[in-house]
Amino acid sequence: MFRPMRRHRQQLSQGDCAAILSRGTSGVLAVAGDGGYPYAVPLSYVYQEGTLFFHCAKAGHKLDALRRCSKASFCVIDQDQVVPPEYTTYFRSVIAFGRTRILEDEAEKQAAIWLLAEKYCPGDSPEHRQEAIRREAGGLCLVSLSIEHMTGKQAIELVREDRRQADLPL
Rank of each mutant, 00 (worst) to 15 (best):
M5T: 14
R6P: 05
R9L: 07
Q11D: 09
Q11S: 12
D16H: 14
D16G: 10
D16A: 15
C17I: 07
C17N: 13
C17M: 10
S22N: 15
S22D: 13
G24Q: 02
T25E: 14
S26F: 10
S26W: 09
G27I: 01
V31C: 13
G33L: 01
G33A: 02
G33W: 00
D34W: 08
Y37R: 14
P38N: 03
Y39H: 05
P42V: 09
P42N: 14
S44K: 06
Y45C: 06
V46Y: 05
V46M: 05
Y47I: 13
E49F: 05
E49D: 12
G50I: 12
L52D: 04
F53D: 01
C56F: 01
C56M: 03
A57P: 00
A59L: 13
A59T: 15
H61P: 02
K62S: 01
K62F: 03
A65E: 00
L66C: 10
L66Y: 10
L66T: 13
R67F: 03
C69V: 08
S70Y: 04
K71L: 05
S73H: 02
S73W: 06
F74D: 02
C75D: 12
V76D: 04
I77L: 05
D78S: 14
Q79S: 15
D80W: 06
V83Y: 02
P85V: 09
P85D: 12
E86R: 15
E86A: 13
Y87T: 10
Y87P: 07
Y87L: 11
T88L: 08
T88W: 03
T89Q: 10
Y90K: 14
Y90W: 10
R92Y: 07
V94P: 00
I95M: 12
I95E: 06
I95S: 08
R99C: 12
E104A: 12
D105Q: 10
D105S: 07
D105E: 13
E106F: 00
A111C: 07
A112Q: 15
I113Q: 09
W114H: 12
C121S: 15
C121W: 13
P122L: 10
R129S: 07
Q130N: 11
A132E: 10
I133C: 03
R134P: 04
E136W: 11
E136Y: 11
G138E: 12
G139H: 02
L140D: 08
C141A: 07
C141K: 02
C141D: 01
V143L: 03
V143K: 04
E148R: 06
E148F: 02
M150R: 11
T151P: 01
G152P: 01
Q154K: 07
E157V: 11
E161G: 04
R163G: 00
R163K: 03
R164S: 14
D167K: 15
D167I: 09
L168S: 04
L168E: 11
L168V: 03
